[in-house]
Amino acid sequence: MLQLILGICLVSALASCRKESPQINDPKRYIEGSFSEAFEAYWNGMNNNYIFWDTDPTNWDEIYRKYQPIFAKMNINDSTDVRKSYTYFKEMTSTLIDSHYALRINSPYVQDSAAYISPSDARHQKSLDYHGNINPNFFYSTIPPKYLDRGYVRGFINLSATDQFFAVAGKIKGNILYLHFNEFSLNVIKDLPTPNNAQKALQYYFDEVKKPEGLKGIIIDVRSNGGGYLSDLDLLVGGLTDKEFSIGATRSKIGNGRLDYTPWIPATVHPGKDAKLFTAPIIVLADLNSVSMAEMTTMALKAMPGGNVKFVGERTWGGNGPLLNNNDYYNSGQFSTGFLSLVYTSSTALRYVDGKLYEGIGFPPDIEVKYNKAALDAGTDPQLEKAISLIPQ
């Protein structure tokens, strides 16, 4: 869940509002010598920063009435009470709809999974349809020789010790352009000074899009993609249109009040330089583990004005509220306290062009093709095969 960068107009507009509204309940200002103070810091931080209070089913005032007395009786220096607090934080956050949401306890008494809480992870894992990510090697090593024509391009690059980007691009049946990549770092990869095969795979795709006359269709595969930079939206989707179009609207917080929201600000995709309108079928493949920018890209493609886009696969994760890369000017988004090293939450809410919020529920496919582990293990891809079948030859 990489932080996303919003457009400069949105940032400037909200920053000018934010400076006139000081944080009277900054969570980091609390001296957390007791669990009562730790609870107050967290509750007020959420009360101020959480962006979905007008749609979330969680009764935040009832949370205060129920849990404040419980925390007041606990000892923040007692290992048993600290471990109990994990259970209470998990209970308090279980119904929050923000699917980016996570928190991490900062204490030597809890470590690893016992320190980290993600309500959306917990909910998804209880679902009968839950599955993990498709193995990256399936995209990288199985799909190319089985489904792509000779001449496909693939490559990977290590962006950090824990972050490896890879991309696969090629043709199917000579006239269907295919692209898969594992995270939205497209602009980062494109601008790297040293050429690499991941960069070449992306360049292959973008070069082919610029000469669409010979293409019968495009398949953009964002399955098991965890998201990334919002700036990639114009690069990828903007490369398929010659006109600006709306995907909906976003809003943030403008004050300390729980419902102090900014107005809804239009969210648009801008055409790329010299981009041409692509009128042949576009199929976007997404699944349960398509999160954040992978979801927003799916939604943006579906909002294209030509009506030539189909979404095949599964309902997406449900975490599509954009994240800002700098929270100094906003009363929304992630924060920390002394006891909680991270409270990770969306900075903005996205209302789709149809007027609906898909946060917490995911974006539904036009054609559902469920995850099939047996087929994948056998080296076949029913979701991709369905996508191919929808592009007339």
Score class of each variant (00 low, 15 high):
G239R: 04
N135R: 15
R154A: 14
M304E: 07
Y358Q: 06
A280V: 02
D242T: 03
Y152P: 03
D78E: 11
R104V: 11
L96H: 09
P305V: 03
F181V: 00
A122H: 08
N137P: 00
M92Q: 03
I254W: 07
S85C: 05
A167W: 02
N327Q: 14
P365H: 08
P322W: 09
N331G: 13
F52R: 11
Q125N: 09
P193G: 04
G272Q: 14
T241R: 06
D287K: 09
F165N: 04
I134P: 02
V284N: 05
Y152A: 09
Q199L: 06
F363V: 07
L384D: 08
Y178R: 10
N47H: 15
S113F: 08
A294Y: 10
H131M: 09
S85Y: 02
L202P: 01
P22R: 12
S347P: 01
F339P: 03
R251S: 04
P27G: 10
I247S: 09
Q393T: 07
S346G: 11
E62Y: 08
L10Q: 10
L357R: 00
P305Q: 13
A198D: 02
D234V: 00
S185L: 12
S79G: 00
N133K: 10
L340Q: 09
W43L: 11
W60T: 06
V269H: 11
S79V: 08
L240Q: 02
G7S: 12
D78M: 05
P271D: 13
P57C: 08
Q199D: 01
M92Y: 05
E295W: 07
L340I: 03
Q334R: 10
G355R: 06
G307T: 04
S246M: 05
